[in-house]
Each structure stands twice: as C-alpha cells, then as structure tokens.
Amino acid sequence: MSRPAPYPVRLADEITRQLGQLADHLSHLPPPQAAQVIARVLAPDTGVLGGVTHLVATGSVFAKDQAERGALPPEVWLALGRASNELHNIALDLDEHQDSLHLVGTAPTATGAKPPAPAPLVARRHR
C-alpha cells in the first residue's frame, strides 16, 4: 500500500488545482469582475504573484543550503535565485498598473454609453 503524500505536497497540489480553476473562471467573467480578480492576484503584498515570489525565494534559500551541503547542484540554487529576482521585477512592473485594474473593476457599467476607444498596442518596457 502506498503512503499518502505529506500535507505540504497535497497543499501544493490543491493550490495548483485551484489556480487552474481560477484561470478557467477568469476567461468567462465580465470585464469588471475579471479586472477585480487580476488586481487581487497581482496585489503586491496579498496577491498570488507575491505569494509565489515569496515561495520561490524561500525555495532559493533551501536550495542554497542544500547546494552548500552537496545535496543539490549549485545550478539549482542559481536558477531559483534568478527566478525569484525575475518574479520580483515582474511584480514591480505590474504594480504600476494596479490603479488601472481597480478603475476597470469598479467602473459602473453604463448602458447606452459610448464604449471607450481602443488603444493601439505598443510594447514598452520600463527597466
């Protein structure tokens, strides 16, 4: 008989499942609700992205300790450290847009009002 997975492993599996459900729901939500969900996911201190960033940073500390003991190759620690730094930078970039997401998420839906004009999509990067 196989042993049940430890609680942290089951928790990671459950979080992954729920994130998939959230993504499925997001694709069917009206724009104001979708903006609210995205804003909460991207909230710097309380959102999913901040939580994942913290989790990866914690994993990097673990990997550093294990690499120093010879249990993991140093490349694992370096990759987790890079991932943590990149996620942090991405979170900073996205934090600039929290106000816009909140505005869309709280804007009253006016019937018969002229819809906003579409904006041309231009890729800009601030770093």
Rank of each mutant, 00 (worst) to 15 (best):
G50L: 00
G50M: 00
V52S: 04
V52H: 03
V52A: 12
V52T: 09
T53F: 01
T53V: 02
H54D: 05
H54P: 00
H54R: 15
H54E: 06
L55M: 13
V56C: 05
V56N: 02
V56H: 01
V56L: 03
A57S: 07
A57L: 02
A57D: 02
A57F: 01
A57K: 05
T58D: 09
T58G: 09
T58Y: 04
G59K: 07
G59S: 11
G59L: 12
S60I: 00
S60Y: 03
V61W: 04
V61T: 05
V61G: 03
V61K: 10
F62C: 09
F62P: 00
F62V: 15
F62R: 12
A63V: 07
A63E: 08
A63Y: 11
A63R: 11
A63F: 13
K64G: 07
K64P: 01
K64D: 11
D65H: 08
D65V: 03
D65M: 08
Q66E: 13
Q66D: 05
A67D: 04
A67Y: 03
E68W: 08
E68C: 09
R69L: 15
R69V: 06
R69D: 06
R69W: 06
G70K: 11
G70E: 14
G70M: 10
G70N: 06
A71M: 10
A71P: 00
L72F: 14
L72S: 04
L72G: 03
P73S: 13
P73D: 10
P73L: 05
P74D: 06
P74K: 02
E75S: 10
V76E: 07
V76Y: 09
V76I: 15
W77Y: 15
W77Q: 15
W77S: 11
W77P: 04
L78P: 03
L78Q: 13
L78Y: 07
L78M: 12
L78C: 01
L78N: 10
A79T: 08
L80H: 06
G81F: 06
G81C: 04
R82M: 12
A83H: 02
A83Y: 01
S84Q: 09
S84G: 14
N85M: 07
N85W: 07
N85E: 11
L87R: 02
L87H: 01
L87W: 01
N89K: 05
N89P: 00
I90M: 12
A91N: 12
A91S: 14
L92H: 04
L92I: 14
L92E: 14
D93A: 14
L94F: 14
L94C: 10
D95E: 15
D95P: 00
E96I: 04
H97Q: 08
H97I: 13
H97E: 15
Q98I: 05
D99S: 10
S100Y: 01
S100G: 11
L101H: 01
L101W: 02
L101Q: 01
H102F: 07
H102M: 11
L103T: 13
L103W: 05
L103H: 07
V104D: 06
T106A: 06
T106I: 00
T106Q: 10
T106P: 00
A107E: 12
A107D: 04
A107T: 08
A107I: 05
T109P: 00
T109D: 11
A110K: 08
A110H: 12
T111K: 05
T111D: 08
T111W: 09
G112K: 10
G112Y: 12
A113G: 13
K114V: 14
K114D: 11
P115T: 15
P116D: 15
P116K: 15
A117K: 10
P118I: 09
A119P: 08
A119I: 11
A119D: 14
